[in-house]
Computed example of a mutant assay.
Amino acid sequence: MKSGNGYVRHLRSLFLSDIHLGTRGCQAELLLDFLNHHDAQRIYLVGDIIDGWRLRKKRFWPASHQEVMNQILERGRRGVELTYIPGNHDEFLRKHTRTRFGCIRFADSIEHLTAEGRRYLVIHGDQFDVVMQNAKWLAFLGDRFYAIALALNTWLNIIRHRLGLNYWSLGSFAKQHVKQFVNFIGQFEDTIFAEIDKRELDGIICGHIHHAADREVNGIHYLNTGDWVESCTAIGENLDGSLEVIRWQGAEQIFARTAKDTETNVAA
């Protein structure tokens, strides 16, 4: 199947989180490009899709943000299973949990069974965030600082672009090199591993910390969807049941994948 100017990749399931529609940092255009080149039998919206925190302060809803919602809802009307698992930024939707609104099912969390028969908890992840659970005011403050960092990052990359340099993420650098961020992510993941082990599941698919991941520890498979503010990542379940992080920088990726698959088939 083709879509506009390229092939569409067919997935069994697609997991998206931390899109933050309603903020200037949202990479809506790149997400639309991603959606145009990916199809799935079911889509999980794993929280912070709409940023209610920011929208309460200032109305910002450009056409590209509405188009993201339109595309997702259109897929639901065509028969794609849509499940919305609200996060902390769209917690106003949590009152709709365990109900259905049109073509969307709402839930606090859900168990996903892969084509391989492995069981995964799908949840936003703020439930495992010590700061969110014990000092919500500090989380709001952190969100404000994050917005400022994104604004600085935008201007920094305008300068880098004029100098002929590639995009560089201040947020991603901090998460990899600043001790406080590294410790926070480690604590978040340790809490998750303990919870999944207790529930006797094979793994978890979550978001919240804007840090995509795919790793296995002591038989527990941990996947984090990342975000559509800086990293532009999602989790895809292939038709054979395997799961992977998809990092999206543009349609050229799918062309490269198609070419690689063609070369493999020819070699075989």
Rank of each mutant, 00 (worst) to 15 (best):
M1Q: 12
N5C: 08
G6P: 08
R9L: 14
R12Q: 11
L14P: 15
D18K: 07
I19R: 02
I19K: 06
I19D: 10
H20A: 05
L21Q: 02
G22P: 08
E29T: 08
N36F: 02
H37S: 10
Y44I: 09
G47T: 05
D48I: 03
D48Y: 08
I49C: 00
I49D: 01
I50S: 00
L55E: 00
L55H: 03
K58F: 05
W61A: 01
H65L: 02
V68H: 09
V68D: 03
E74C: 03
R78W: 00
V80K: 03
V80C: 10
L82W: 00
Y84H: 06
N88I: 08
F92A: 13
K95H: 09
K95G: 13
R100G: 10
C103E: 12
I104R: 01
F106E: 07
A115W: 06
E116P: 05
G117P: 04
R118F: 12
Y120Q: 14
L121F: 08
V122I: 15
V122P: 12
V130W: 11
V131C: 06
M132R: 08
Q133E: 15
N134R: 12
W137N: 12
W137M: 09
L138Y: 08
L141P: 03
D143T: 13
L150N: 11
I159A: 14
R160S: 03
H161W: 10
Y167W: 14
A174T: 12
K175C: 04
Q176N: 13
K179S: 11
V182L: 07
I185F: 06
A194Q: 15
E195S: 15
E195N: 13
K198Y: 09
E200S: 13
L201H: 11
L201E: 13
I204A: 08
I205Q: 06
H208S: 14
I209E: 06
A213H: 09
A213D: 04
R215N: 11
G219L: 03
L223Q: 03
N224R: 10
N224E: 08
T225C: 12
G226H: 01
G226D: 07
W228I: 07
V229F: 02
V229R: 04
E230C: 13
C232A: 12
D240M: 05
G241W: 01
L243Q: 06
W248Q: 07
Q249R: 10
Q249G: 11
A251I: 04
Q253Y: 07
I254G: 00
A256S: 11
R257E: 14
T258S: 05
A259D: 10
K260L: 05
D261S: 14
D261L: 15
E263F: 08
V266W: 06
A267Q: 08
A267S: 01
A267D: 02
